[in-house]
């Protein structure tokens, strides 16, 4: 088990061109996984970017962001471990492993 890279529960996509760099998502993100970049986007704002890890997929950044599609939040379809167990057990009663 220790060999398996633990995947984050969530992922973030930030549309750099739509972002106005207000920083509300940076403030809102509970694990502090969003930052403002040093460079400017085409509108002259410092766009937010995902630090690359730590996202839980909670979606609060999405709700805090004033732009309709600047942030997209993704979540793991199913935990990786559970899927592996499923395929091996094949019909056996699945029990909650976590």
């Amino acid at each position: 088990m220790s060999d398996i890279v633990k995947q984050d529960r969530g992922q973030l996509r930030i549309d750099e061109d739509e972002c106005k760099g207000c920083g509300l998502c940076v403030e809102a993100c509970p694990p502090k996984a969003i930052r403002l970049s040093e460079h400017l986007n085409h509108s002259g704002y410092r766009p937010a970017y995902y630090a690359g890890s730590g996202c839980t997929g909670c979606g609060i950044c999405f709700m805090t962001c004033p732009e309709p599609g600047a942030i997209t939040v993704l979540r793991l379809a199913r935990p990786a471990a559970a899927r592996q167990i499923d395929s091996k057990m094949q019909g056996a009663v699945a029990c909650a492993s976590n």
Binding site: I4, Q11, G57, F62, P68, G69, L74, A77, A80
Partner: peptide
């Protein structure tokens, strides 16, 4: 072992 991500919060 990687799982797929699916969009849960996107542009309405």
């Amino acid at each position: 072992t990687m799982c797929e991500y699916e969009v849960v919060h996107g542009r309405p």
